[in-house]
Every structure is written in C-alpha cells, then in structure tokens.
C-alpha cells in the first residue's frame, strides 16, 4: 500500500521534471529561462531552510550567509584563478567547507539554548558577513560587486549556455530534492521530527539531541551554499545583496507559504514568490501600492501563519488525510452493520 503510494507520487514528480526539461525547447526566451533558473535556485535554498524550520524546528534568521558564502566562494575563486572547470570545482569545495564550518560553529554555540538564540546569532553572523563583504573591497568589490567568467563549454554547447545552466540547476534541484527527501525519511529524519515535536521525550529515549541538531544545521548550510553557487554562476555576477536579510526572508516566505516540513512546498513557494516578484514589479507602473508589495507579502504571511500554518502543501495533505479518514470510518461502519446483520440472521 505504502509502496504503491510512494510510486504514484514519484511518478508525478518524474512527469513534472520531464515537462520542465522539455519546456525551454519550446519557449527559448532569455528572460523566461532566467526566471525559471531563479525559481530552481531559490527552491534549493528554501528546501535547505525547510530542513531546519520544517523538520527540526530551528529558526534561522541568517540563512542568507550560507547563500552568500556559496556565491562569493565560487565567484572569488573563478575571478582569481583561470576560469576552468577545476577552478569551478575548487570554488564549490571552498563553498562547502566554509559554509559547513560556519554552520558547525553557529550550531555548537547556540543550539543547546532556546530557539531564539540560534535565530539571533545567525542574524548577527549574517550581519557580520554582509559588513565584511562590503568592507573587504579588494576581494569582494564592495557593494558594487564584480562580474566573472564561467568556464567555456565545449563545442556547440557554448552557444546555448543559458539552456545548459537551466538544465544544470534543474538537475541539481531534482537531485537535492530526492536526496533530502531520502534523508528526512531515514531514521535520522525521524529523530529530527521527534526533536521538533518534543525534544525532551527524544532525549529520554536515549538520543543525544545536540549532534543531530548540529548535523542538520551543517547539511542545511551546505545545501544553501550550493544554491548560492548556482545563483552566482547563473548571473555571472555577485554583490553584497546575497547576504541581505531579504534573501533569508524570501526563503522564510517560500517555506511558510509552500508548506513547512514538506520539501515540495518550498519548491512551490519559490515558484509563487519569484513569479509574483516578477509580475508585481511590472504592476508597480500601474499603481503605486504595488511598489510597496512587501506589505502585501507581510499581510499574506501573517494570515498564513494564523489560518494556514501548514502552508499550501500542508493544508492539501491535511484535507486529503481527513477525507481518507472519513472514508475509512464509513467503511468500518458499513462492515460493522453487515456483521450485525449476519449475526441477526
């Protein structure tokens, strides 16, 4: 039964991926490709956020720093060295290690305390990284940032570079999605959900919760850094904006609106937020209120927190579950009636 259900959802995912692979061949528009790449990149970023918020119940206000570390690591390496594939790989390695170390340090310092300590510390650390990036002009180019070259692709692929990046980010998103899905369904993931629901009970069952929390904060940080890497190479440009609090807030909105603790939710959230960014900034010319669209987002966010704390995917899941329960109760009742009838007969 469970295997069948899993198969069904996996098939749906494969169908969507297939459509996404074919999509750019029908609509080869530069802006469209760019928008889709943004959606994929932020989907990865929001999924990494969901690992913390949705599965473990850790609130981070500085998730942008991992994104920024990833973006700057790869950009600075490619800028300093020749832009070849080995230097790209080196940049990715730097991104993974730097983000992992920062996540580890932030984790061991504050994860044994109440939730707001981690939120505050990450917020403070992200502020520090933003400050360093603005001040260390010789490396980061300050607020203006810098452009860099990405390695040339062999042969005819070079002419369709955006398409290749599109497929690559899509590929990464799919791989990371299934990887994280596997992780959350593993025994480790179960312990994490247990920590979210009731950490004392998990502890009394004999698990030491600190290593789990630190581990998931490292994994989440590394995945966020990978999103930053993809962001940088898709733009071939990086500036201090990647460390901005708004990047974190975007991830937060995507995760909450899409559905916390679902992984597919952040992807849907990313699509919604990026598309509305895109269309609302067009609408700003129509009416001034759309320039202040953050208000709209804030209000939606608050309403979502009060009325749909489970987000889109979570609410749908709940509804489906309820219906299934109702049907099962009806079936059981019918069966009982039949049994009763048999007895009487």
């Amino acid at each position: 039964m469970i295997m069948q259900k899993l198969h069904k959802s996996t098939w749906i995912y494969f169908a969507i991926v297939f459509v996404l692979i074919l999509l750019p061949f029908f609509k080869d528009d530069r802006w469209f490709l760019f928008l889709m790449i943004q959606i994929f990149v932020f989907a990865i970023f929001a999924m990494s956020y969901d690992l913390l918020l949705g599965y473990t119940g850790i609130v981070s206000f500085g998730h942008a720093m991992f994104f920024g570390i990833g973006a700057y690591s790869v950009a600075v390496t490619m800028n300093r060295m020749e832009s070849t594939f080995p230097s790209f790989l080196l940049g990715v390695l730097v991104a993974v290690f730097a983000s992992g170390i920062v996540a580890f340090l932030a984790g061991i310092l504050t994860l044994k305390l109440k939730s707001h300590y981690y939120a505050m510390l990450t917020l403070a650390l992200a502020g520090m990284f933003l400050y360093i990036a603005e001040r260390w002009r010789s490396v980061t180019g300050g607020n203006d940032g810098f452009t860099f070259r990405i390695p040339e692709l062999p042969g005819a692929l070079q002419d369709h570079r955006n398409l290749v990046i599109y497929l690559f980010t899509l590929f990464m998103m799919v791989i990371l999605f299934f990887g994280m899905k596997r992780l959350t369904e593993s025994p480790l993931g179960r312990v994490l959900v247990g920590i979210r629901e009731n950490d004392q009970r998990v502890e009394s069952l004999g698990f030491r919760i600190m290593p789990y929390k630190v581990l998931i904060s490292i994994i989440s940080g590394v995945v966020a850094a990978l999103a930053g890497v993809l962001y940088a190479i898709s733009l071939r440009f990086v500036n201090t904006q990647v460390f901005d609090i708004e990047v974190t807030l975007d991830a937060l909105l995507m995760t909450i609106i899409g559905g916390v603790g679902t992984l597919i939710g952040p992807i849907i959230g990313s699509a919604i937020i990026n598309l509305s960014h895109h269309f609302l900034s067009d609408l700003a010319n129509v009416h001034w209120i759309f320039q202040r669209w953050v208000i709209l987002f804030g209000v939606i966010f608050i309403l979502a927190m009060i009325f749909f704390p489970n987000g889109i995917v979570g609410t749908i899941k709940q509804k489906v579950e309820q219906r299934r329960m109702k049907r099962r109760i009806l079936e059981v009742e019918k069966q009982e009636e039949l049994d009763e009838g048999k007895k009487h007969a």
Binding site: L53, G57, V59, F61, K114, S115, H116, A119, L249, L252, I256, R292, V294, I295, F297, G298, V299, F301, I302, M305, I306, P309
Partner: peptide
C-alpha cells in the same frame, strides 16, 4: 500564537515588515 515560540518569531517578523513598509506609505 501564545506559547509557541517558533510561530511567534515568524509572525512578529511578518508584522515587522508590515510596520516598516507602512511607515514608508
């Protein structure tokens, strides 16, 4: 959201955004 720290953090952050943008309006 009394008693739920995570939801408090998130919802008041949303309200913070609204307050800040309302100032600009």
């Amino acid at each position: 959201v009394y008693g739920n720290h995570i939801r408090q953090i998130l919802i008041t952050l949303g309200f913070m955004l609204v307050l800040t943008e309302m100032l600009k309006v």
